[in-house]
Design a protein around this nucleic acid. Structure first.
Lengths: 353, 353
DNA sequence: ATGAAAGCGCTAACAT
DNA sequence: ATGTTAGCGCTTTCAT
C-alpha cells in the first residue's frame, strides 16, 4: 500500500504538502496541488484512517450497537441513523449483539478500542452498568430501550401512551376481552406498554387482570403458549407488544383456525414492510423510526461538539396505523362475554347488545 | 483515555512489559502480570486498536458490504458471516450500500482506508471494475452476486440449477403457464435464473417466451406491473426470482382477488422467517445462507494466510422448501389452457385431462 | 507557499 | 525476565 511518503516523492514535494493538498489544512499552489493529485491517482493512494485518527485523536466515527440486525425494526433504525450520520460527516461502525448482554459488552469495548467518538446503543437490558461507566468518558446515547436510571442521553417513544392509545382503539371497536402479548417484563419498555394497556382498560371501567398479559419469551414454541392463552381466555382481540409477537400471534390464530379478523382481531406494535404479506393487512402502533434515528444522531453530535452537558431525554409519540386486522367485535361475542366466567371486565358496562 | 504508558507507570514497569502482559508476546512473571492487570482495571484501560493495527500492519478486521441491510436475505447472511469471523478471531466492519453503486464504491474505499485485511462484497452490479483493482492489493471475496469475469474469489449458489429445479417442481404440479418475476436482467444471478426456467420449460417440451419473464424493477408500483402481467397471460403459477418479488406477487394476487393457491400458485426464491406471515405458507427455493457465509469467510482467510493464490469459485446447490403456496393445477385450468391464444406452450403435450 | 520534525499509542527488535 | 527505542502513516507546529 502506498503511503503519503510515496505520493510526496512522486510529486516531488514534502509529505506536509501532500497532507495539506489532500486535507486542505493550508494553502497549496494550484500546480503543486495538481501534481499531488496526479501522483495520488497514479499510485492509487488511499489515506490511512488509522494513522489519521491516531494523530488527530478523533475518528469521525460513531459506534452503533443493535440487538438483532435481522429484525426489521432495528435494521430500519440502522438505516435512518446511517443516513443522518453520513449527512453530518460521520461514519458508523455497526454491531449486532444478538440479544446477548455479554457480546454487547465485548462489542462496546471493541468500539472504544477503535476510538469511536461516541456511540448509540440499543441495549439488551435496561441501563447496563458498564454503559454508564463508558458514558463518563465517551458520549453515549441510549436508543429505544431507555429504561432505568443513569446520566445518559436517551431517545425513545412514549410506550405508555402508545400502548394506551392502541388499547383504546381496540376498546372503541367494542373489544373487552383483550389479550396482551409481551416478550419479557425485564424491559421497562415492555412494562410501560403493560401500564398503558392497564390504564386504558381501567379508564374504560374494565378490570385489569395480569393473567391476560402473556409473556412469550424467545423460545421456538411461543406459538403454543399463545394458543393456550387464547383457548383459556377466549379473547376477541390480541395486542402484540412487539413485531415478532405479531408473527407469533398470526401463527397461533391460524393453528386454531379462528376466523381472522372476524372472530379475533390483532393489533401489532412496530410497523414493518414485510407485514404486508399478512392478510388482512396488519394494523399497528407505529414508531417514528426515521425521527428516532435522527434525534439520536443529533443528541450525540450535540455532545461531541460540547453544546450540552446535562443528559437529555427525547420521548417521541407513536401513531396508529389502522388497516384491516382489527374488526369491530361481533354481537354474538358480546353476548357470550357477559356470561363468561373468567372475563376480567365482564361485569362492567361493556356489553349491551 | 489512559494509554499503555499510564498503565506502565502505575504498575511500575516498562510499556513493553505491559504490552507483553496483555498480548502475551513473551513471558511475564506472574506477579508483574498481576500488577499490570490491576493497573489496567484501576484505570479502565482499553488498548488502542488503531495504534496496534498501525504498528502491526494488520487489523484482524474484515470489511463486509451488502446491498441492503433491511433485506432479511442479506441480514441473515451477515449474521452467519459475523459468527464465522468471530470464531476465527476477526471482527467485521459492516456496511450497507443501499443498492447504490457509488455509495458502494465509497464504502469500499472507506474500508481500505481503515486497513481491513480483506473484504467480502455483495456488489450492486456484477464484477465492478474498481473491485478488481482493489482485489489486486487486498483479498476480496465476491458473494451471492458473482457474475462477470475477474480474478476474484467468489461464493454463490448455482442459480441455473436452482431455478430449473423450482420450475420443474411447478411443472410436476401440472403447471404449464408459469410467469417468472425478476428484478432486472443486469445481474448474471438473475439471468441464470431465467436460463434455468427456460431450460426446464424446454426440457418439458414447452416453448419459452421471453414475454413471460417480467422485469419488475425497484419502483413502488411494481405490484401493478405484476397485476397487468397476470391479467394478460393468465398464468397458473408465478415463480418469484427474489424474496422481495414474492411480496409483490402476493400483493398482486390479492388485489386481483384470485383464489390462492387454488387458482394461482406461487413459488419464491430465498427463504425468510417473516414469510410465515403469509398464508398459505410460502414454498421457496432455499439458499444455504449459513454455508454461504462460512465459505466466504473460509476463502477469505485462506487468502489472508496465503494458502492459495489462484482464484477460487464455490457454487452451492439450493434446495426446495415445499410448503403450501403451490397447488396442483386445476383441471379446469388445463382445459382453458389449450384454448388460450398467447400461451407459449399451449401447443405442446402439456394438457391432457 | 513549502519543508523538517515531533509525536499520536502501540509492538518488536535489540538490548541487558 | 524486563527495559529502551525505532517506527507504523499521519497532522501539525515551528521553521524558512
Amino acid at each position: 500500500m502506498p503511503t503519503i511518503r510515496d505520493v510526496a516523492r512522486l510529486a516531488g514535494v514534502s509529505i506536509a504538502t501532500v497532507s495539506n493538498a489532500l486535507s486542505g489544512g493550508r494553502h497549496v499552489s494550484p500546480q503543486v496541488r495538481e501534481a499531488v493529485l496526479a501522483a495520488v491517482r497514479e499510485l492509487g493512494y488511499v489515506p490511512n484512517r488509522l494513522a489519521r485518527s491516531l494523530r488527530n485523536r478523533r475518528s469521525q466515527t460513531i459506534g452503533l450497537i443493535v440487538p438483532d440486525i435481522t429484525n426489521p425494526f432495528f435494521s430500519s433504525l440502522v438505516k435512518s441513523i446511517e443516513q443522518a450520520a453520513r449527512a453530518r460527516g460521520y461514519q458508523v461502525l455497526l454491531c449486532s449483539s444478538e440479544e446477548d448482554a455479554l457480546l454487547e459488552y465485548d462489542l462496546a469495548l471493541a468500539l472504544i478500542s477503535r476510538q469511536v467518538d461516541g456511540m448509540i446503543v440499543i441495549p439488551t437490558q435496561d441501563a447496563p452498568r458498564y454503559l454508564q461507566r463508558i458514558g463518563e468518558k465517551t458520549p453515549v446515547v441510549l436508543l429505544d430501550r431507555i429504561g432505568g436510571e443513569d446520566g445518559l442521553d436517551r431517545v425513545g417513544v412514549d410506550n405508555l401512551q402508545a400502548a394506551r392509545r392502541g388499547t383504546e382503539y381496540l376498546l372503541s371497536q367494542g373489544h373487552r376481552r383483550i389479550l396482551l402479548l409481551i416478550s419479557t417484563l425485564e424491559l421497562a419498555n415492555i412494562r410501560e406498554r403493560v401500564e398503558g394497556y392497564q390504564a386504558a382498560l381501567e379508564a374504560a371501567g374494565i378490570g385489569f387482570d395480569e393473567r391476560w398479559v402473556v409473556p412469550c419469551g424467545r423460545g421456538a414454541d411461543t406459538a403454543r403458549v399463545v394458543e393456550k392463552a387464547i383457548q383459556k381466555y377466549r379473547p376477541s382481540a390480541i395486542f402484540a407488544a412487539t413485531n415478532r409477537l405479531s408473527l407469533v400471534a398470526v401463527q397461533a390464530i391460524r393453528n386454531l383456525n379462528l376466523p381472522f379478523p372476524e372472530r379475533i382481531s390483532l393489533l401489532g406494535f412496530d410497523d414493518f414492510e414485510w407485514s404486508t404479506l399478512l392478510q388482512p393487512y396488519l394494523s399497528t402502533v407505529r414508531q417514528p423510526l426515521e425521527e428516532m434515528g435522527q434525534r439520536a444522531i443529533q443528541l450525540l453530535l450535540e455532545r461531541l461538539e460540547g453544546v450540552r452537558s446535562g443528559p437529555a431525554r427525547v420521548l417521541l409519540p407513536c401513531e396508529l396505523a389502522v388497516r384491516e386486522s382489527v374488526a369491530p367485535v361481533a354481537l354474538s361475542m358480546r353476548r357470550k362475554e357477559v356470561r363468561s366466567k373468567d372475563n376480567p371486565g365482564g361485569s362492567a358496562k361493556s356489553a349491551k347488545p
